[in-house]
Computed example of a mutant assay.
Amino acid sequence: MKEKRFEVVFSQGTMDVVRILVDQVTGVNYLQVCNGYAGGLTPLLDREGKPVISPVKPYHG
Rank of each mutant, 00 (worst) to 15 (best):
V25L: 11
R47Y: 05
K57G: 02
Q24H: 01
K4I: 09
G39V: 06
L45S: 01
T26E: 11
Y37H: 07
S11M: 13
V18R: 11
G13Q: 09
C34A: 11
K2Y: 07
V52L: 12
L45N: 03
V52N: 01
F6T: 05
T42W: 02
D46K: 14
D16S: 04
E7P: 01
L45K: 12
T26R: 08
E7H: 05
L41C: 14
D23Y: 05
G49C: 12
V22E: 00
A38F: 04
G61S: 07
I53F: 02
L44A: 08
V22C: 00
Q12E: 09
E7Y: 01
L44W: 06
L21S: 05
M15Q: 08
F10P: 00
M1P: 01
R5Q: 06
M15F: 04
P43S: 10
N29L: 15
G61P: 03
V56P: 00
P51L: 07
V25Q: 13
R47W: 11
T42K: 14
I53W: 02
L21K: 15
L21E: 15
P55V: 12
E3A: 14
F6D: 02
I20T: 15
A38D: 13
M15H: 05
N35E: 11
K57P: 00
G27N: 12
Q12C: 05
K4Y: 09
N35Q: 09
F10D: 07
P55W: 02
Q12A: 10
L21F: 08
S54Y: 04
G36Y: 03
K2W: 07
Q24K: 12
G36C: 09
K57W: 02
M15S: 08
H60T: 11
D23A: 12
K57A: 15
R19Y: 00
P43C: 05
P43E: 15
K50T: 04
G39T: 06
Y37M: 02
V56Y: 01
I53E: 04
M1C: 09
D23N: 10
V18A: 10
Y59K: 08
R19M: 14
V25R: 09
